[in-house]
């Protein structure tokens, strides 16, 4: 017998999760679509569902020891209107779906759903976000790229809940998020590009790039980025073709009903190139 529970506290939720497996429901914006059944009948869940969206203790955004910390069930629309929210994250949220979706969608949902086209994921990768997972046994912290292991795959254990997302506070002199969707709103990415640099006294101190929807998970290659730290801006721009070539082999998009691989690849590399030459 399926038993769906609406816990009243995080502790209750953790205890339930420790007891038996549940499907965790946050805002439901992905899950309710994936499990959709015939109209007027309930969505098809074979597992028990745990409703955590209304746990007020997981709704917050705060600054703490060099991090911006976001409670996992905070609707992304709230983040859009909060001064603490990192600029790039706001950029991504601002063109995510529609206001109605943003009132329910959460970053934790994007992580739990682990779609390569998840709008906030490239930002979390670029900002080196740390995902805080809590269970009755305690807390563990993992970088985002270790949480998501493939399309719709992650390492979150059955008894764990995403408690919060910690984003290190960092400075960028230039950063962009470019979502390429089928239309200007209410769209799923064909691909996305995120770039962030910190150039001080004409020296590249930080250089970060991520692509969404061009490979099985968000594409970020720290070993490529590191090669270009320490250059002058001029030097960096001068190496634009080299950088494009570095990323080229890692960009392996697919053909689907929304676009094709040639387009995804060409535009991903165009956006990278454009980001660098317009620094």
């Amino acid at each position: 017998m399926v038993k769906n529970i609406i816990p009243t506290s995080l502790n209750e939720a953790l205890e339930l999760l420790n007891d038996r497996p549940f499907k965790i429901m946050a805002g439901g914006t992905d899950l309710m679509v994936q499990r959709r059944a015939w109209s007027q009948t309930p969505p098809e869940f074979i597992e028990d569902v745990l409703y955590i969206f209304n746990l007020e203790e997981l709704k917050y955004i705060k600054e703490d020891k060099g991090f911006i910390v976001i409670g996992s069930t905070t609707p992304v629309e709230d983040l859009l209107h909060n001064d603490l929210t990192p600029f790039l994250l706001k950029e991504a949220i601002g063109i995510m779906a529609s206001p109605a979706l943003r009132h329910m969608a959460t970053i934790a949902g994007n992580i739990g759903n682990a779609s390569p086209a998840g709008d906030t994921l490239p930002i979390l990768y670029v900002l080196d976000a740390i995902i805080v997972l809590e269970s009755i046994e305690g807390i563990r912290e993992l970088p985002i790229n270790e949480v998501i292991t493939g399309p719709r795959k992650h390492v979150i254990k059955q008894n764990e809940i995403i408690k919060e997302i910690k984003i290190p506070i960092s400075v960028y002199t230039d950063s962009v998020f470019e979502k390429v969707g089928g239309r200007k709103a209410d769209a799923i990415s064909k691909l996305s590009f995120t770039g962030a640099v910190n150039i001080k006294d004409d020296k590249v101190l930080d250089f970060r790039i991520a692509f969404g929807a061009v490979s099985a998970t968000i594409l970020r290659r720290k070993e490529i980025e590191e090669k270009y730290v320490g250059l002058t801006k001029e030097e960096l721009i001068g190496k634009v073709d080299e950088i494009v070539n570095e990323y080229d082999p890692f960009i392996r998009p697919i053909d689907d009903q929304r676009s094709n691989k040639e387009y995804r690849k060409t535009v991903a590399l165009n956006l990278l190139k454009n980001f660098i030459i317009t620094l």
């Binding site: 239309r183 200007k184 209410d186 769209a187 799923i188 009903q257 929304r258």
Partner: peptide
């Protein structure tokens, strides 16, 4: 309506 794209108010 996610995959078949018609214009929104923003388009």
């Amino acid at each position: 309506v996610t995959d078949y794209i018609i214009p929104t108010s923003v388009d």
